[in-house]
Amino acid sequence: MHIVMASDHGGFQLKEFLKNQLAAAGHEVEDLGPDCARSCDYPPYAAKAAERVLAADCLGVLICGTGLGMSIAANRFAGVRAALCTNEFMARMAREH
């Protein structure tokens, strides 16, 4: 599966961890940034991921301090449906609905 990932500084460490786990599981992971934990704004990264998901028809994973900002920013793009998922059940239900 092709997965694009992006975060802000608050989600950087989790993004790096998940990126490595997904790659080890055989998924193609595309990291859209940031490349360090230095303070940054989330909207540009959410936009890059939303645009990439629409262009490549792939799965996107967005991570920020709460998950709310990234999902709100990504949902501004027609055709993108971002959901805050804090556990496997929520992720599964978001994908099904």
Rank of each mutant, 00 (worst) to 15 (best):
H97L: 11
L32Y: 07
A6Y: 07
A25E: 06
L62A: 10
M93R: 15
N75K: 01
D41M: 07
S71D: 15
I72R: 03
K19L: 10
H27Q: 14
A56I: 05
Q21R: 13
V29R: 15
C85D: 08
I63K: 02
L68A: 01
E88A: 14
L22S: 03
N75Y: 02
A6Q: 07
R81K: 09
L14D: 06
A47L: 13
G79Q: 13
A56Y: 05
R38C: 04
D35K: 06
S71V: 09
S71W: 15
A49P: 01
D31M: 08
G65Q: 04
E88S: 13
N75R: 02
M93W: 14
K48E: 05
Q21Y: 05
H2F: 10
A46G: 15
R95Y: 13
L59G: 01
F12L: 13
C36K: 07
N87M: 07
A73L: 00
A49D: 04
P34L: 10
A73N: 01
L18Y: 15
H9F: 11
A56Q: 13
A94W: 09
S39P: 12
Y42Q: 03
C64M: 12
R95N: 11
R92A: 10
L54T: 05
Y45A: 04
P44H: 10
E96V: 04
Y42H: 08
A25S: 13
L59T: 03
G69E: 01
G26R: 14
A25C: 04
C58P: 00
A25R: 13
T66Q: 10
N87S: 06
V53G: 03
R92T: 08
A47S: 12
T86S: 06
G26V: 11
A74L: 06
L59R: 13
V29Q: 05
G79E: 05
H2G: 12
H2P: 11
C36D: 12
K15A: 09
A47C: 02
A49K: 00
A37R: 00
A82G: 09
L14A: 12
R81V: 06
F77S: 03
L62Y: 06
G79K: 10
N20Q: 10
L54G: 03
Y42A: 03
F12Q: 08
P34V: 05
R81S: 04
E30L: 14
V61R: 05
F17I: 15
C40W: 14
P43A: 07
G65S: 06
V53P: 13
D31I: 03
F89Y: 15
A82M: 04
D57M: 12
G60I: 02
P43N: 06
L18K: 14
H9S: 08
I63C: 11
T86W: 09
G10L: 00
I3L: 11
